[in-house]
């Protein structure tokens, strides 16, 4: 008994390790909802992370504003308060113009993909793990978000929802190495598979006889049932056809800049309408 007591910490760590391995096994399979415990932790992290992200974004924007102002001051010492005021107004108008542009693009998107409702979300935190590009968004189950919903910006496809909590959800972007999507080369109609790689780039395989060229548009094929047909993914920027290769390897320049994206839209399919629109030129 005393020997058992002496070894209690080894027993504790072994038991804990077994429990964790069971958790890994349970959580690695597909689940519709995360557990209550996970949901609570997420609800604690979410508002804090959201607030810090908001502060960081405002500091970032002010710092870039100051840098811009200084460089202008250097080149033109005649700048006075009025010009600063005008510049502020111009900046405000520019922000409004960009917002207008973004909303207009979303409207265009909505016109093309009318079978979806768009749920606007902000990114509130990104994975600290260097090998992962998973991020969390500020909306969850009560906004109608469920697992496997596609996530887009006005530029193109971002990824898919992989876990949903209350008020937050985890998104797996396309450029994560665990991500893959069935795609279609818009011009030639060849299909292939596009995956994220360890450089967080999009690498894909296309049949060897495909007459693709650099710059061809890549869109989702609609196969797999997660992403609807016709979502813009990016443009081919590299094609490799080595001797003995069974498939052509392509690299795709994503339409979305995954490092800079701050706002995304989750696509909620409207019941009764066909899943997936026509291919956009």
């Amino acid at each position: 008994m005393s020997k058992l007591y002496k070894n209690r910490s080894i027993i504790m760590v072994a038991v804990a390790a077994i429990i964790i391995i069971v958790i890994i096994a349970v959580t690695s399979v597909d689940r519709d909802r995360i557990s209550a415990g996970e949901s609570i932790v997420g609800s604690i992290i979410k508002p804090a992370a959201g607030a810090v992200t908001a502060v960081v974004n405002s500091i970032r924007s002010s710092v870039s504003g100051i840098a811009e102002y200084r460089s202008l001051k250097d080149t033109n010492s005649m700048l006075n308060e009025q010009i600063i005021l005008l510049r502020a107004q111009v900046r405000e108008m520019e922000a409004l113009r960009q917002e207008n542009h973004r909303l207009r693009e979303m409207l265009d998107f909505k016109d093309v993909h009318s079978e979806f409702d768009l749920i606007g979300c902000s990114i509130i935190g990104k994975s600290p793990d260097n090998t992962s590009s998973i991020f969390i968004i500020n909306k969850g189950a009560e906004n109608g978000i469920v697992k496997n919903m596609p996530v887009v910006t006005s530029s193109g496809l971002v990824g898919q929802v992989i876990d949903v909590g209350s008020g937050w959800a985890k998104v797996l972007p396309l450029n994560d190495q665990r991500s893959s999507v069935s795609v279609l080369i818009n011009r030639t109609r060849d299909t292939g598979i596009l995956k994220g790689d360890i450089n967080f780039e999009l690498t894909g395989s296309i049949p060897p006889d495909a007459a693709i060229v650099e710059g061809d548009d890549v869109v989702t094929s609609g196969m797999g049932g997660i992403y609807p047909k016709g979502l813009f993914v990016g443009k081919i920027n590299e094609i490799k056809t080595g001797a003995g290769r069974l498939l052509k390897t392509i690299k795709v320049e994503p339409a979305v800049d995954f490092n800079k994206v701050e706002e995304v839209f989750v696509l909620k399919h409207i019941e009764g309408l066909p899943f997936g629109g026509e291919i956009v030129d």
Partner: peptide, 19 residues
């Protein structure tokens, strides 16, 4: 904490940090 908020599956980071 890290696993729940950012990872799928949950537990790999937990196991490594615990050990």
């Amino acid at each position: 904490l890290q696993d729940i908020v950012f990872a799928k599956p949950v537990g790999i980071t937990t196991l490594s940090y615990m050990l």
